[in-house]
Simulated assay, not measured.
Amino acid sequence: MSAASKTGVAILGAGLFAKEAHVPSLETLGPLAPTVKAVYSRSEKSARELADEVTKRLNTKPGVYHDSDPASNLDALLARADISSVIVVLPITQQPSIILKALAAGKHVLSEKPVAPDVASGARLIATYNAEYKPKGLVWRVAENFEAEPGYIAVGRAIRAGKIGKVVFFSLRVVNYIDQESKWYKTPWRTIPDYQGGFLLDGGVHSTASLRVMLPSSLTHLSGFASLNKDYLAPHDTINTILKAADGSHGIFELSFAAPSASRSSIGNGTIITGTDGYLTVAQTKVQDPVTGGDKSVFRVTIKSVKTENGKAGPEKEEVIDEAVRGVELELASFFAAALEGKDDGLGDPLGALKDVALIQAALNSEGKLVDLENLVQQS
């Protein structure tokens, strides 16, 4: 029996990412996803706009729920017996309470990253889930699409296979250009963020998740600095850090949303991981789709392997892997398999997402001092 024939799913939140990422991914999944039977937003206008998008792309007419009508509010949606799961795509500070509300209503939950605004509140949320809702068989997963990206997973697989030997050092650089006309900036909750880091938290957990997936050993320590260089990106827009992993490898993580121009964001971005027997690079690029003839986004992994004998490097071998960008689609498929069929592949574990928040929080507060990342998570 397909997931679509079972109880339905609701989308809570009607912002850009719900419309531009989740709905198209549900369309791609087709019968592998349950029917979207309801949408919710604080305002009726945005809820109806999302409902129209669902109707257009998924050929179904969902119920519309919003806060301006007590008969059609979130409580009414969560009371529906024909909805077994919800996708939460709401502002960062609102998500924890909505996650708990949905779990209390007996719904499986997929919540957008980050898991919470800070480590302490994320740890409390996970503890409550583990104590009260997980024993009841309810599934809660965090939608971190970079964790699901086949490109990053391919990197982790190549390193475990020994293609570059033991990891020695690494670097991840992400420089973005955000101006006040950007559709991502104009969202009110981003314009005046009531959470640490602003864009650095909201977007930065993608980068930390990619490191978590690629590196063979967990990150244990961080030292770094944070700054604000464009007032409209307050409270911070740039972090530069040094990281250490449990296996002794170390590296650099640089993240900024304060590029002076769009062209700066196209220079030097990407990941380089260097080992004893070679190195690899990862970067997002465009390639021609052989089916449609148009462009499609891929993560390109280039592996350079070299064996050293008697202190002399042998010939270098190159392997190139292109993996289509499809993390949102795959995280949704994984969640539905876990929630509806009990097939849990471990993707979207809230504890992994908490470690992503911990790295960003440490970078924002380090001021050059060494931060023990494991203690930060365990003591919260």
Score class of each variant (00 low, 15 high):
M1E: 12
M1H: 09
S2Y: 07
A10F: 01
F17M: 13
A18T: 08
P24C: 10
L26P: 01
T28I: 13
A33Q: 09
Y40D: 09
S41Y: 11
R42Q: 13
R42W: 06
S43F: 15
K45I: 13
S46M: 10
R48F: 07
E49Q: 02
D52T: 14
E53T: 07
V54N: 11
T55R: 03
N59Y: 12
T60D: 05
T60Y: 03
K61Y: 11
P62A: 12
H66S: 08
H66V: 07
S68E: 14
D69C: 13
D75F: 13
R80G: 01
S84N: 04
S85F: 10
V86H: 14
V86T: 06
I87S: 03
V89C: 04
Q95P: 06
S97G: 14
I98C: 07
I99E: 03
L100I: 08
L103S: 00
A104F: 08
H108V: 02
V109A: 11
S111E: 11
P117Q: 08
V119Y: 10
S121C: 09
A127V: 04
Y129P: 01
N130Q: 15
A131Q: 11
E132I: 08
Y133F: 12
G137M: 14
G137C: 08
L138F: 13
V139H: 06
A143D: 10
E149H: 00
P150H: 11
P150A: 15
Y152S: 05
R160T: 05
G165Q: 00
V167R: 00
R173E: 00
R173A: 12
V175N: 09
N176V: 11
E181Q: 09
S182K: 02
T187W: 10
P188V: 11
I192F: 14
I192H: 13
P193R: 09
Q196F: 14
G197C: 07
G198E: 04
G198R: 06
L201V: 07
G203V: 05
A209N: 05
M214E: 00
G224V: 05
A226M: 07
I239K: 00
L243Y: 03
L243V: 06
G251S: 06
L255Q: 00
A262Q: 12
A262P: 04
R264W: 04
S265D: 08
I267V: 10
G270Q: 13
I273A: 01
D277V: 05
Y279K: 03
Q284K: 09
D289K: 07
T292D: 09
G293I: 06
D295L: 01
K296G: 02
V301Y: 04
G314D: 07
K317C: 06
V320I: 15
A324L: 12
R326L: 12
R326W: 01
V328T: 06
E329F: 10
E331Q: 11
E331Y: 02
L332Y: 03
A333V: 00
A333Y: 04
S334T: 15
F335I: 03
F335D: 01
F336Y: 05
F336D: 03
A337E: 00
A338P: 09
A338E: 01
L340W: 04
E341F: 15
G348F: 08
G348M: 02
D349S: 11
L351V: 11
A358G: 10
Q361L: 10
G368V: 09
G368R: 05
G368N: 09
V377Q: 13
Q378I: 07
Q378E: 14
